[in-house]
Write a protein that binds this DNA or RNA. Structure first.
Lengths: 160, 160
DNA sequence: GGCAACTGTAACTATATTGGTTACAGACGA
DNA sequence: TCGTCTGTAACCAATATAGTTACAGTTGCC
């Protein structure tokens, strides 16, 4: 299969925003945390905004933040926002319709792929961004008592 | 994600062999049913043979057949034989280690991806090739009463 | 032995997807 | 109006899959 990192990056991005609470993050800062280019992040933010998971503001002092509370955003929401296709695909070219297996394998495979997709979705639906932030906590527990904006950004990306 | 059709094709191939029972199928015939090139099929058959799901024989009258009974081959076996990577991937480049989220998101994401992979594997482990053939049956029930080899191949790929 | 029919595999090309980069128009706060 | 952002187009690079030709090696059969 062709797994991309889009889902992982999207979860990372929304986790950053949950971590930052209501403060808008600039794509440049998010990109530094994710370790990629700011345009890659902005492209993804557009998709996340279309799915109403984040809201962005242009202009000076702009940036992006969560559109709703972290506990109201599941990983399934994120998955559906950034991964268009299912886990598996059918044949590139349709099978031979003159073969009794070829002509019937499609529906059967679709049943199976649906079962797989459903299982994946069931797992993702039960994990929220708040859960992800919580699982992060044990390692950084008292590390970043959020205070003022400037302080926060230094903490978020201390590498600069 | 990057879903390929390798899994779908592999299931198709093994289903053909279960359908053909113990008679060895030529890559050329399998390719016609799948509607692709025979070399693509032979490459896949090599992977399936490495995983001990099929056995192939060279030379005249050669071909490939299942290495064990259809009810002893699960879709998980096939998935593991032809799909190297998991459903999702982590970041292409590791996140920023100076960011409290970036440095901790990896293990959390790995937990999630493991849960997803496990869910997928649980579904696939419960479906055998025999099940797939059975699900095929309703559409072709009495269609191909297997008799002699020549007759069988005509039925398998009637398009030629 | 020699031929014909297979598999296994290398080498190459084509195509698609993802990710990275530069560039720039438009929005917006101060 | 100026500087700082987002949104987006237009590329390029890297990678994975798939398709194709070609051919060496194996095997059954005459």
């Amino acid at each position: 299969m062709s797994t991309s990192s889009r889902f992982a990056v999207a979860v990372h991005v929304l986790t950053l925003m949950a971590w930052a609470e209501d403060e808008p993050l600039k794509s440049e800062h998010v990109a530094e945390s994710v370790n990629t280019n700011a345009v890659v992040i902005r492209r993804m933010l557009c998709e996340l905004a279309e799915s109403k998971l984040v809201v962005s503001q242009s202009g000076a002092m702009g940036g992006s933040k969560l559109a709703r509370e972290p506990e109201q955003i599941t990983l399934l929401d994120i998955y559906q926002a950034v991964e268009s296709r299912g886990v598996f695909s059918l044949h590139r070219h349709p099978p031979n319709r003159h073969c009794p297996v070829g002509v019937n394998i499609g529906p059967v495979l679709n049943q199976v792929l649906d079962e797989v997709d459903t299982a994946v979705e069931r797992v993702l639906a039960n994990i929220t961004i708040k859960d992800v932030v919580s699982r992060l906590q044990p390692c950084v527990s008292t590390a970043a008592p959020k205070r003022k904006q400037v302080r926060k950004e230094q903490v978020l990306v201390a590498g600069n």
